[in-house]
Design a protein around this nucleic acid. Structure first.
Lengths: 188, 188
DNA sequence: GTCTATACACCGATAGAC
DNA sequence: GTCTATCGGTGTATAGAC
């Protein structure tokens, strides 16, 4: 198993159990590697594994979700592309958000600056698209934050209710919410 | 220190660290009681402490947040009262939601049914108020879910960005969002 | 690179004195 | 009720054979 293949398995464990709930035994079982083998790939141990997994997720997010936002097509198209990729990123809402689970407890001290960075980049990128679509800058920023709020909140509801339809609903209307076609959330 | 006073301290630890990140050492430090004293109050150990804390939070939520929703005043007033109490419940957004942290990892197996119950009651109660306010039943349910989604999502954004203004904004407009005064989220 | 074996700290939990 | 002392188990991490 290559390092990249291992990372793909590790991320599932951190997502499901959070940082403190993730044990080397679970990581070992998920990858099929012994503990000592994990330390061969990640000499820094659990903390390095989490950091690597987070870096990998952020990188995937930037290239797959954010890059299409900076494309040269109409803002509407870009936002729809983003919504689709978000759906993939969270596996139709069935997967917990790595960022939200790594922002609690001790993990917060270790990783929150990385998470804060990527989230701010997301907000900024989305804001820029909305501005290009003709939305006032301040309003654009609020709507961007609101869109992300809805995605994150829906993930929690899905997890608790064991039903991913709220997530699907949020994603489907996300373009309209952002572009204001529902006259939604105008600071009014 | 009485048992109720102890519970008030325990809840802070579980909120901050989640279930697996909460250790008896931290619970002991937060309450000022030795581990053995904690076992005197909670013979079932950490699991019983978490269950008690969750039960206490749910009870507070039902009497403080949900009861006003069933009052005999206008729906608008009731919803505004709810928003105020939610603000208290989450300490102006500075406190993590106990439900969301107890719905990950192993804690999910132990507590999610309790959390699912209280969340469904919240949705149902809110839906009923909106129906009384003249909203169509299906639309009322969706808006109720959306309101809760926004509260939960805002809490995550606040935690990651170290800035509680998204939470304040969500709470301020919550009545309008629910009552549809922003023509918000009509299934259109 | 992967394994078994192991070191050492901390975990949840208990015993028993006071 | 609260404490100190301690148990068995598990946590992270390492050593060393292959």
């Amino acid at each position: 198993m290559s390092k990249d293949q291992a990372i793909a398995q590790l991320i599932k464990v951190f997502r499901q159990y959070g940082y403190e709930g993730t044990t080397l035994a679970r990581l070992s079982k998920a990858t099929g590697l012994g503990k000592a083998s994990l330390y061969h790939y990640f000499p820094g141990g659990k903390e390095e594994m989490a950091a690597t997994v987070l870096e990998s997720a952020n990188s995937w997010f930037e290239t797959t979700v954010l890059k299409p936002l900076k494309a040269d097509s109409e803002p509407e198209k870009r936002i729809q592309a983003m919504s689709q990729k978000i759906n993939e990123f969270y596996c139709q809402g069935q997967e917990t958000c790595l960022w939200s689970v790594l922002s609690v407890g001790e993990a917060r001290n270790l990783f929150n600056s990385q998470i804060e960075n990527i989230l701010k980049i997301w907000i900024d990128t989305l804001t820029q698209v909305l501005i290009e679509a003709g939305v006032e800058p301040q309003e654009a920023r609020q709507r961007s934050e609101d869109g992300i709020i809805q995605v994150q909140g829906a993930l929690i509801l899905v997890r608790v209710l064991n039903n991913n339809s709220p997530f699907q609903r949020v994603l489907e209307r996300l373009p309209k919410v952002l572009l204001g076609e529902l006259s939604h959330l105008q600071s009014s």
